[in-house]
Design a protein around this nucleic acid. Structure first.
Lengths: 178, 178
DNA sequence: ACCTGAACACCGTTCAAGT
DNA sequence: ACCTGAACACCGTTCAAGT
């Protein structure tokens, strides 16, 4: 008798993310999520009282919240490393990109943006420069991931060096802001 | 007796866009679209045999396809003007942004990207520089619109100069690529 | 050719009931 | 407290029928 692990918010979120990564956002339904959790769909509402809307907000938070870690060293190097990690995470969960771009849960992305802005501020930029810089870098990251995801879908030029192109573009953006 | 104008693909697309702009993507359903067109929902299938999927593809094409117009003059000036217009269009139809970021209809965005790449190529950049430049500029544009849309939803700092911040970031990106 | 109406499988969610 | 089961309103779509 394989005992089912207890139903928790974390397990729900993780399973939903796994479902999206494997089958796409369109196939995430409360009923299918219930099946994957070996539970009736209605049981989910006990842990997420606001239903699917709340589930999606949690997914956005889980993927999009990725603040720059504290540390020292050259600002551009720190931002370069952080941006690479953020891009990897977003590409691992491209299925949630449409959610991140939605009006739902605006806080998740804004907290991440704020952390970049704070870093730039600490590094000596003016408040206005830091705001423009953080907005530009985050915009570049989000948009480039969206473009890469589409290219993958279209499957044109499979020999394309997406990583190299990203790093080249990133260096340009970093030169402009930091 | 107000005669209903004939049902055409264009009228369907326009009405759907109007519905999204006013009520959001989540409220676009075939049945509601039928109501807005003063027709049974099933009539739409006669003009879009592949149903909602085809409708969404058309909406993406309508909003995201925005190639750089032919012309002469300073490359940065041309790209600046074009980018401003593209941003305005995307902001006018933020509701379709989640669709643009989806894997559906990859061609629409890629054609736009290609037009930027061609412009950079004609202006003397190498093929690789043009590819990185087009990808960087398009990425910046898409991502920044997504961020702006979220900020609008959160309604923090209503005195924020979003247009100025965009132009400042755009100048940085243009300096890096053109 | 163009549109309608009934029908089907599926969806999110409420609500009363079980343990 | 935690989960189930039936029910409701809604969805996209098929298919036969109308004109």
């Amino acid at each position: 008798m394989s005992q089912r692990p207890p139903l928790t918010r974390e397990r729900i979120i993780e399973t939903a993310l796994h479902l999206i990564d494997g089958q796409g956002l369109g196939r995430l339904t409360m009923r299918r999520l219930g099946d994957a959790l070996e539970v009736e769909a209605m049981a989910i509402y006990h842990h997420l009282p606001h239903g699917k809307e709340q589930l999606l907000e949690q997914l956005i938070a889980h993927v999009a919240a990725h603040p720059v870690p504290p540390g020292a060293g050259d600002v551009r190097d720190r931002l370069r490393a952080w941006a690479g990690g953020y891009r990897d995470r977003l590409l691992d969960h491209v299925g949630v990109m449409p959610l991140i771009v939605t009006r739902r849960n605006p806080g998740a992305l804004m907290a991440t943006t704020q952390s970049v802005q704070d870093l730039l501020r600490t590094a000596g930029r003016t408040e206005a420069e830091a705001a423009v810089g953080a907005h530009t870098l985050l915009g570049y990251l989000l948009g480039v991931v969206a473009l890469d995801a589409r290219e993958q879908a279209a499957e044109t030029a499979p020999d394309l060096d997406r990583d190299g192109r990203f790093r080249a573009g990133l260096d340009g953006v970093l030169a402009a802001i930091a």
